[in-house]
């Protein structure tokens, strides 16, 4: 598929996508990824994948990868903005309700694998 922007805080996604796509690695939390995605949308990049992909809740998995169009449109894509705003609202609510816990290394690895698999399948369908 054509080159896209992937915003992620998952180093596995960075490693596997960096040669093919433009990866913006966020050294931060899941919400920092979503805020960065929102910045891109305001710069007229279009959202390609759902920011809340996967049934693992944003207060469970610490990792998130989101794909955006590399090309900028002339106008802001309102649908993209709606998706990211609703996703941020949902994530903020869940995190406020029950903050993420500390996970052991092996569990963090599994969260990375699932995050990577979901975005990989979406881009290579």
């Amino acid at each position: 598929m054509e080159k896209v922007i992937i915003v992620t805080n998952n180093d596995m996604a960075l490693e596997k996508f960096k040669d093919k796509h433009q990866v913006e690695f966020v050294d931060g939390k899941l919400l920092d990824v979503l805020y960065k995605v929102r910045d891109y949308i305001h710069k007229h990049h279009k959202l390609l994948t759902h920011p809340l992909m996967g049934s693992i809740k944003p207060n469970q998995t610490p990792y998130k990868s989101v794909a955006l169009s590399l090309k900028k449109s002339d106008e802001l894509d309102v649908d993209s903005l709606m998706y990211i705003e609703k996703s941020i609202e949902t994530a903020e609510n869940l995190i406020k309700n029950k903050p993420p816990r500390e996970w052991p290394e092996n569990v963090l690895y599994d969260f990375k694998v699932i995050d990577f698999d979901l975005i990989y399948n979406a881009l290579n369908r």
Partner: peptide
């Protein structure tokens, strides 16, 4: 049908529902 990827899949007559 849930069909997002690893550990999030459903099959119909053996076919992965995301396809």
């Amino acid at each position: 049908l849930q069909s997002q990827g690893l550990l999030h899949d459903t099959y119909v007559y053996g076919v992965d529902a995301k396809k």
